[in-house]
């Protein structure tokens, strides 16, 4: 098993390397650079050219890539162009906690809601609650995030006034437990918006997996052994039904960070999703590259975790 995990980590390294090439190439392929947005007619173009020269934008692309890579490997992604004088890594780190709070909150709600309902639906197929859950599943998958976010803001923030419509914290937040509750209060609407689609898909997956497993021969064996329904469900069924859910979790793990771009935009929630949107608008290359690389890294790490979890849960993978 350790050998499997070790091999899996070895594979991770070339993938990460390939990721850096793709991120870099994509950005270089996009037209323009940070200075092409400056349209001041009084500005002498030679000034911009000098700035390009100084920042190394005129060097051959491979040189630029290796310079970026060697600095990135040391955790140095350069300075932001928009926020002059601020390190990219420092900028990202200042926003990252907000996004993580949002992602973890949303994932937590998703799992708490989706897994029990999925199990219930599978055990009571075609019951009223199952039909309701199915309907909700289609709704969750069909309604786009930004639309649901806007409706939620209109209903729960503007009309009912239950939750704040934007931001991550109140101006009056003074820390402590009250401050924590204030943060949670700000997380509710964006968190639910972010979790809507994944709740729907986890629920559908869970239902179909549990239903399949409950109909399998080894569940009949477990019942024939005289095990109680509880043991049959929580030991024999869940362990098998969770195997495909882990794959989904591998993707979702990356989405905790990157999937929040639109939601954060709708709720003007100052996380890294917002930062990405701003940076794209400003052609803030160093920030865009660092963020894209980070999103890719999170997806890779998510899949790595999923594969390791697989090998723990499913013995058939371990011995391959």
């Amino acid at each position: 098993m350790y050998q499997y995990i070790f091999r899996r980590i070895l594979v991770f390294i070339p993938m990460l390397f390939a990721l850096t090439i793709i991120v870099f190439a994509l950005l270089k392929a996009a037209p323009g650079d940070p200075y092409s947005k400056i349209l001041d007619p009084d500005l002498d173009p030679s000034v911009l050219e000098e700035a390009r020269e100084a920042k190394g934008y005129n060097d051959p692309i491979p040189v630029q890539y290796f310079r970026w890579l060697s600095m990135a490997a040391q955790g140095d992604f350069g300075e932001s162009i928009r926020y002059v004088g601020r390190d990219v890594s420092e900028l990202i780190l200042s926003r990252l906690p907000n996004t993580l709070y949002l992602g973890v909150f949303s994932l937590f709600v998703t799992l708490i809601v989706a897994i029990p309902i999925g199990i219930y639906s599978a055990r009571n197929p075609y019951s009223p609650l199952d039909y309701f859950a199915t309907g909700f599943g289609f709704f969750g998958l069909a309604v786009p995030n930004f639309f649901f976010g806007l409706v939620a803001i209109y209903l729960f923030a503007i009309q009912l006034g239950w939750f704040p419509s934007q931001g991550y914290i109140s101006v009056s937040n003074s820390g402590g437990f009250g401050g924590f509750l204030d943060r949670l209060h700000h997380l509710v609407l964006p968190g639910l918006t972010l979790g809507l689609a994944s709740t729907a898909s986890y629920m559908r997956y869970m239902r179909s997996e549990v239903l399949t497993v409950l109909g399998s021969d080894y569940i009949r064996t477990a019942r024939a052994k005289g095990l109680t329904e509880r043991t049959v469900l929580y030991k024999h069924t869940l362990r098998n039904a969770l195997i495909p859910i882990i794959t989904l979790f591998g993707f979702e793990f990356g989405a905790i960070v990157s999937g929040a771009v639109i939601t954060e935009g709708v709720f003007t929630f100052p996380g890294i999703g917002m930062l990405l949107l701003e940076s794209i608008g400003n052609r803030d290359y160093p920030v865009i590259m660092a963020l894209t690389l980070m999103f890719g890294l999170f997806i890779l790490v998510g899949n790595l975790i999923a594969d390791i979890l697989y090998s723990i849960v499913d013995p058939r993978i371990r011995y391959d």
């Binding site: 021969d217 080894y218 019942r223 024999h236």
Partner: peptide, 24 residues
């Protein structure tokens, strides 16, 4: 019934390939 099944009365099935739980 759970006290009788597997205790006083046991059963084996047709498909040994699928009748055992693969993860235990």
């Amino acid at each position: 019934m759970t006290k009788i099944r597997g205790n006083d009365m046991a059963m084996i099935f047709q498909e040994p390939m699928t009748a055992l739980n693969p993860v235990f």
